[in-house]
Structure formats: structure tokens, C-alpha cells
Design a protein around this nucleic acid. Sequence first.
DNA 1: GAGTTTGAAACT
DNA 2: CAGTTTCAAACTC
Length: 705
Amino acid sequence: MDTPDKTQITPTPSLSKFEDSPVFKYINSLSPIELAKFRQTDNAFNSLAFLSPSSLFPSPQISCHRESRFSVKRHHFSAASNSSVLQSSNDLNTDEGASKAIEQSYLYDEQPGCLNSGSSSKGVSSDQLDDQSDLAIELPRTLKYDCGSPDGNLEPCDEILKNTSEKVAGHEASPFQHNKDEGEERQMSFENERDLRKIRRIMRSEESAGCDWVAIVSDVADLLTTNSSIIYENIEGQDRRTADPGTTSFISTILQFPLDNSNNLENTETGDPSGSCKQSKLGVPVTDQTPAILSTCLLDKLVVSDSGLNKDDKGEKCNQSSHQQRSIRRRCLVFEKSPGFGLHLNSLANTSNDQSPLSKLTPSTMKRDEVPHHNKAVVTDNSPETPATVSGNETDLNSPEKKRTKFEHVEENAACKRCNCKRSKCLKLYCDCFAAGLYCIEPCSCQDCFNKPIHENKVLETRRQIESRNPLAFAPKVIRSTDSVSDSGGETNKTPASARHKRGCNCKKSSCLKKYCECFQAGVGCSPSCRCEGCKNRFGRKGGGDESESDGEDLETCERNASEKNSQDIAINRSEEYPDLSVPSSDLSRLPFAYSGKLSGSFLHSVRLSPQLCTTQELGSSDSSSCRPKFESHLQAIPEDKTAEILKHNLSPVVLKATSPNCKRVSPPHLHDPVLNGYGSRAFKFHKSTVLSLECALFIKVETL
DNA sequence: GAGTTTGAAACT
DNA sequence: CAGTTTCAAACTC
């Protein structure tokens, strides 16, 4: 908090002119600061000369801010990642530039009183020197959302400053020193800066509004795309090092952050090198990571990049740890490779996609114990392998029966997907795993299973075929809609919500009172789209009846079935951490942020769009609310013809939450949507704030449409 | 654990 | 689109 030493901030780019002057020598002889040391910061100051006065005279607050962020980041990402970050600080030709630029931009904007807006006219491509000192600065949003991140590990400011200083010292070569056309660069940089500021404003707006997260991402992506072009333009004839290819990658990351995030988590939190050791696109559904989505996308890119850079190094360890990984990792199908082939919301919800961005398709893993206990259900839901891990004795699971028993016990409320296919080779929708977009895993008792990473091509091809036949085949089966969003962002879980099976059931004998009925299984009421006969669905009869209309027997049956059976698939996380989540925890668990129903649960692989993702807590309420009154739908129906467009433009699987009152199906997101792709495959932790934002955004968009 | 029931998925 | 078959989960005993 001390005011920067005047002697340290006095130097200017023209300083060298005076170094040889008698006065300078005299002063220098009097100064306790050694020349060498002084020179060490000289470069930094030179670079700072391009910045605004405010940049030259950052307030102590800013410093602290940065420091705290840095600390947070250090904590958030493992030491390995941290070291990677530091190491990569020397690499000007990485993604870091973009993310750092944004960070910096954010910082400037964050201190409007101290910073000159025009000062930071150092755009993405020109801020690198200064960025070097900010390499590890964490995105402000990380602090905001990363509630789950343990605190107390903040590194002392001194330490941070020290590290920063070291890094700065290590970067003698300033990009600016290579810039011949400074004026042009400044102009370009200013534009970049302006865009970044715009992004920042959007983000801030989102923070204050607590909604429209999707739009934010979209807008940011647009800005970045534009910015990218500017950058490349700017690169022409300039130092290629500023041509930050990473920017493009960075943008891609934003679009696919879920995957990256997943990888990050996998590679950093678990420290499991397997994350890079991709045998397949496997993933462990990671839940409740929503908070880090934006931060990860925007600012943590360098960590991701580092992961990728270290991929080779980790590869050696891959084999060694592969076995162990299996026991703790949930394998998920990744369809990003196949544009148009879908990564659906339900996939998001249940599967944790461990996809890495673009070409980086690495499995993601997440330690089971890393998941909050209260979210266990969600995790297990996506982590069929978990049981084995928990048991610690895989041999005990050799028997299908034992496996099942074990799982049922462990996953009481976790819808771990496992199958017992015998003739379908697990390549048909009969297979729950396949249908959920997950690879079969050890707990499965399937025979002649092809739904494994080693048969990835076949799996993808099969899936493609199925989707060609029915584009919605892998889409969430249950569409959930929330009638309202909590104004305060809290107690959303209490908000009435409705959910309906996308296509409806066709029950004839079960009266929709058993899990044979998909509606009942999903914990949703039957709708007019159902063709069931003698519907007695406890969650809502086709004709509009609800539990109050149910007779005692129905109620009893319903409660029994719901509590005893549904808990597995529709278990709801009544997370203590996110009590106000309007999105069912089970959904979140599958969302990739895990996003699809059976499949995706983690962000939104964790937020089940299928029975799981889209289903709301109502579903899950295997507890007291197991048999809830019929859901109310306040959202406007999304005409089928508009659905595609909505999905196309909003990209957010969240749109799927909107229930179509008229029972029209909601088209699932398509993989060719970059953003959606990203969501689709990753597992993310969803913070309630993010969930609320998503719901809010969806609600608004749906209403608008 | 085996057998039956059920309804979705797949096929024709 | 309708009817039939296949399939695997759910269920019963």
C-alpha cells in the first residue's frame, strides 16, 4: 500500500539519455539503489512509458488487486499449472497475450479513478510487456465466482511482487522495441483496447445484472473475433510475436471453454497427466464449476495452453496412470470432432466432456473427492466409474450383479450410467451409456461392447447415423422450463418450474406410474404429447391432473417408485452450497458446465437436459418433493420452427430449458455451433449465480422470441 | 437369480 | 406413418 518509490517510477524511456550525465551519476552515487537493479526495471518502465500515467503510477489498490488475483489463481490451479504459467511468461507467442490483455484491460477499467482510459491504449498485441508482470493475474471474475476455491492460501503480496519482478526482469525484450510503426500500433491497440473494454463492460454488466451469461459469452466471442482480425491485421509487417496465435486459440477457448475448463480441472486440480493422455474423449463429469467458466475462458487460457504444451511430457505418465484414471474418471463421448454430430445438452449434463478445444481432445478427469460432498449425486451421476473407485476393489465388480448392487448403493442419488447390453453392442440408443453420450466403463456389464474409446470412430459414426435419422436422438428427453427467475438470484429452487418429456411417453400398461414410463422416470408429468393410456403419472397427468387428483394408491406407488428408483437418475442435489439453484443439481451435475441429460450433466453434462439435464429438481426430489404438484409452465412455448434458430443464435443449451407448452419439440443444439460444442462437452461446476444468469438469459431470450 | 413385463428404439 | 421386431431396463417372484 505504500506509494511506489519515486525513484522507481521516475525513469522514463528517455532515461537512458541522462544516464551518462553528471547529474545522473551523482544522483546514482547517492542512491542506495544499485544501478544494475535499476536497470532491471528499466525495461519495464520503458514499456510503461507507452502506458498512461495511471499505468505508471498504479495505485496501491491496483497492486493489491492484482496480487490477490494472482494468489487466487495460484491456488485455483495447481502448482504445476502455475509453474507453467510462469514458465510460459517468456513465450510471447502464446495465448497468454490475449488473456492477459483482457485481464489488464479489466484492471484498468476496474480502477477508473486511477487510470486513464486512453492510457491503456495498448491493445492485445501491444500490451505484452506490461502483461508480463501480470501473467498470473487472475480474472476478477474468478474471485467473484470461485467461491469453492479454498481461501487462505493467498500468497503474500511481497511474494507476489517478488515473482512478478522476477518475471519482468526475465523479459528484457519488449515487444515495443520491435515495433517500428508505433503510431499505427497504438491505433490498433486502442481499438483492441476498446473492444476489450467493451467486453469488460459486458462482463461487468452481467455481474451486476446477474443474467444473460450466454449473451455475454456470445458477445465476447464476437468481440474477440473482431479483435482477432484486428490483431492479425496489425500483425502485418509487425513483430510476429505479437501476432499472438494464441488469440485465436483464446477465442476458440471461449467458444469451447467447457472443454478447456474440463481439461484444466483435470490437469491441474487432479494433477492427473492423463488429461492429456487422450485415448479417447473421455471425461469425468465435473459439476459446479460454472463459476470458472468465464474466467477460464477469458483468462485462464494460458493455463490451458500450458496444459497442452505439457502434453507430451505428461504423455509418458499417461500409461502409468491410465489404470488409475479409469477408476476415477467418467468417460464421456465427445462429438466435437464431428460437426453437426451432436453434443447435446443432455450430454452435457451427464457427461463430463473432457474435450479439449478444437484439436485438443483430451480426456478430462476429476477426482471424485474434489467434488463437494453435497454434489456427490451429480458427480456420481456422471461418473459411473466412481463406484469402483470408491469400493477400491474392482474385482468385486466383476459380477454384473455385484456391480449393479454396488452402484446402486453408492449412487443412491447419483445417476451413474451403466448398461447391461448384450446384443446392441452398446451402439444403439438402447444402451443408456451410449444414449447418454458416455463410453461404457468398467461397471457396465455389457457384452461385445463397442462403446469404448478404442472404438471411437465406430462410436462416432454410429452416433452420426443415428442423428442423421433423428437429430434429436441424443437431445435431452426432458425439457424443463422455469417459470420465473428469482429476482435476487436466491431461492430459485423454490421457483415453480415445469418439465415435460420431449416426445412424451407411450405407456399402455404401466399407467405411467413406473419407470417404464420415461416421463415418470424423469420425474415429469405427462403432457399432451404423450400417447399413454390410463395415465396416472404422479408428476402430472396427460390431461392436466396432478398429484392432488391422484388416488391413494397412485400416490403411494408414485412415492415409492420415485423415492426408491428415481433417486438414481433424478437425484437432486439440494446443495447446501447452491441452495437457490433453480436448475436441478442433478441437471447441473450433468452439465458441462456438463450439460446433457443422461449424458451431459456437468456443465450443463451435469445439468441434465435429458431426464437429468432438463429435468429440474422436482424430478430429483426423491425426497419429500418426490411427488410434486404438477409443474407450472410460465415460459412461452418455443415454436419448433424457431427452436433451431434460437439454438443457433443463442447457442446455449439452456434454451432447452424452455418447455414448449404446445408440446412441440425443442431442437437440440447442434455441434456445429462452436459455442454449443464447447458447452456440450465439458463438465463444469455451476455456480448458482451462473445458473441464474443462464436461466435469466434464456428466459429473456425466449420471451423476446 | 431367473423369468416376465414393459415400452423405447429400431426396423420394415 | 404404422406395424412389427428387437432390445434392455424395470419389475416380479
